[in-house]
């Protein structure tokens, strides 16, 4: 109880921001048309996945290029449990998260045990995600390349998590999950294990010299990270009602997940959320521009994939001009203004 009150006190500004953000976002469904509400739900799902990535790569400094592995495992766990065993997605999301955490432990143990660091660890995670994508493409039991479609239910079904006003309810549910994940990362950041993660990120040898076990710290980060991103993947299944290996395990998913915290601010609480909002807005704007460009831009009409090109450009500019993301950029500006 005592520790809880210290946590609340020391993180009060973050928690206040969270309350404000959730309050504003929760009334959004009133203002948005159905299409934009779906877009917003997608933003939140990827923000959740990005929060998971941020624990491993932002907090503990182990850069993952393959978080689609966790996302896809979560997505498939929910889909298979529901379609083959009629297990409610409520349970499916938890099981999916646990599968993600367990997978993270295995991959983490194998990679960190043998000293994979930096670019080599990133490449290993990329390879693992690709292995899963190819494997799932070839397993008939899992729908192979055709994927899995979740049968539609009419009316409200809380057990199968389908609703008549499905957009609003899913939006609020994922918003709730996101809030829980933000609180969890605030708690991690303030806790002992969070400090260990930062120490390992800054200097593994120095951390070890203080009696911190870097391997254990990285494994904890990997499993928490895998859990959160897998839950996001599970929610992807529930919301879009269709998955296939390329959609959930593809490299595009890994990039989408890691781009958000990098743009928003790696290792910060709000970076993944801000990055998700900014990138999704930009993506939607570009896509609608390509669909229906104004006269002077008529040459880009139908140039699908332009948003991806734009993301690539943003990434390059960010890394050169603001490697610590939007939040980091603002913090530096404020510090400069003070001095």
């Amino acid at each position: 109880m005592n520790r809880l009150s210290t946590l609340v006190k020391s993180s009060s500004s973050d928690l206040l921001v969270l309350l404000g953000v959730v309050a504003i976002l929760s009334i959004l469904p009133v203002a948005l048309n159905p299409f934009l509400l779906s877009v917003a739900t997608g933003v939140l799902i990827f923000a959740l996945a990005a929060i998971g990535w941020n624990v491993l790569s932002g907090f503990a400094g182990q850069f993952s290029f393959g978080h689609a592995a966790f996302f896809g495992l979560g997505a498939y766990t929910v889909a298979i449990l529901l379609t083959k065993y009629s297990v409610s997605p409520w349970l499916g999301l938890v099981v999916g998260g646990l599968v993600g955490a367990a997978f993270g432990l295995v991959v983490g143990w194998v990679s960190f045990r043998f000293g994979l660091k930096g670019a080599y660890f990133a490449l290993a995670t990329f390879a693992v995600a690709e292995m899963l994508r190819i494997t799932f493409n070839n397993l008939d039991y899992l729908g192979a390349g055709i994927g899995i479609t979740i049968p539609l239910v009419y009316g409200d079904d809380w057990v199968r998590m389908q609703f008549s006003n499905t957009r609003e309810i899913h939006y609020w549910l994922i918003l709730g999950l996101l809030a829980v994940a933000v609180v969890a990362t605030i708690a991690i950041k303030r806790s002992r294990i969070g400090s260990y993660m930062f120490a390992v990120r800054e200097d593994e040898d120095a951390a070890a010299a203080l009696g911190i076990n870097p391997l254990k710290t990285k494994l904890v980060a990997m499993s928490i990270s895998g859990f959160i991103t897998a839950v996001a993947g599970g929610y992807f299944t529930l919301f879009f009602l269709f998955i296939d290996p390329d959609v959930v395990f593809g490299a595009v998913v890994s990039v989408a997940i890691l781009l958000r915290p990098i743009v928003g601010g790696m290792g910060t609480i709000w970076g993944p959320v801000i990055g998700a909002a900014v990138l999704s807005l930009l993506g939607e704007l570009t896509r609608s521009l390509v669909r229906d460009p104004p006269a002077f831009l008529s040459f880009i009409e139908g140039a699908n994939g332009l948003d991806q090109v734009l993301f690539g450009l943003i990434l390059v500019v960010m890394i050169i001009r603001a490697p610590d993301g939007i939040l980091g950029w603002f913090r530096r500006r404020r510090k400069q203004a003070q001095t």
Binding site: A199, D203, D205, A206, A209, G211
Partner: peptide
Amino acid sequence: IVAEGVVQVPEARKLF
């Protein structure tokens, strides 16, 4: 080893 009370101050300080 650190838990046993054997602790090193690394060269070049290695602060966070």
